[in-house]
Design a protein around this nucleic acid. Sequence first.
DNA 1: CTATCTTAAGTAAACGTTCACTAACTTAAG
DNA 2: CTTAAGTTAGTGAACGTTTACTTAAGATAG
Lengths: 200, 200
Amino acid sequence: MAKRLQASERRASILAVAKVLFADKGYHGVSVDEIAVRLAVSPAVLYRHFSSKQDLYEAVLSEIACTRENYVDVVVRGPDDFGGMLARMTLMYVESVARDPDYLRMELHAALEGSQAARQFFENRWRPFADYIEFGLGELRKEGVATGIDARIAALMFQGMVREALYAKLVYQADRFRDHSLVDLVKHLIAMFLRAVKLG
Amino acid sequence: MAKRLQASERRASILAVAKVLFADKGYHGVSVDEIAVRLAVSPAVLYRHFSSKQDLYEAVLSEIACTRENYVDVVVRGPDDFGGMLARMTLMYVESVARDPDYLRMELHAALEGSQAARQFFENRWRPFADYIEFGLGELRKEGVATGIDARIAALMFQGMVREALYAKLVYQADRFRDHSLVDLVKHLIAMFLRAVKLG
DNA sequence: CTATCTTAAGTAAACGTTCACTAACTTAAG
DNA sequence: CTTAAGTTAGTGAACGTTTACTTAAGATAG
């Protein structure tokens, strides 16, 4: 018999194992038995904590989707120029993703499935950047700089380039970039982005 | 009984139907029976033309992955400045993807599965851009412009921003960009990219 | 006729899920 | 402090379904 855990601990352990497997192979790629085997527990245990496989999957998805970065520290500590702040926010985000790449894969799965969670991923993970860029460029325009830029499209560009760096390093593991660390890559990209919005 | 087709026509019709379904739901999300039903044919027909479900999937994947754009027209017709050429190539690519969004989804599936095809997708679809950017920036540097840019990272940025635009419009269908056509979006992005590499 | 293609009707294995049951812990009366 | 009753966590086999795949017989064009 498997070790007896408190309901809350067991639930957490199921979520942790399911997350790794679902991130790796997607919903249909993982069987309930496989999850149970990894937990060294019988399949029925899963149904004590989740009403169905789908329910477990959605719990995994929403746990990841609902995680938000707290950028307060980043805003407080350091100069408040647009580029510097954006760089600090981005590096914080990128480093947190690098620590847990399963997040990236789950985001992709959610996007392909068109699930509700895909929207949450955007709201909690990317929206802060889009908002900061739209706001920041708006302020700068009042000062007569960064004029003639569509802030929304700039935010799209930013999101795309950061995402591509994350994919290249964490999903594709393209060895074209073996000489650049992820942080290094992101710093280059931000410098280029600032030029793109006429702040370089 | 279903209409009798020549082997080659039947094979092609199977590939066409399987492509739509696999692009939509991924390998494990589609059953052999489902494909057969859509073809109005019995499952055994599939096994006459493909040795297994996996074999059929790989045929779909490699058919898409091996498609290459022919950029000759684009290179010949029009001025040969770096920005103009890049824009024409990109628009040609983007329009071809818009005509067949299943390609995009299959590329994502392949990436998540880490399949061999993922490499082919890059080689046939994105590599031409990466190569053109690396070469073009190299030439420009000799003329003393666009200096101090890492061409490889610039190519990453370019790929990311184009991909993000495609996702936003074709996969996510984000209505933040309902006012911009895909072509419009891409033109803005290219203008920004040129500034990012000091050519704006 | 006959070679080729399609079909209906299967197979065994894997799937998600539920079941009757047992082991371990918690509680409170004697 | 014991001990019996009650509660929670876990088991493993079995359920009905769906899966990928096969076989043997029927239909049709050349």
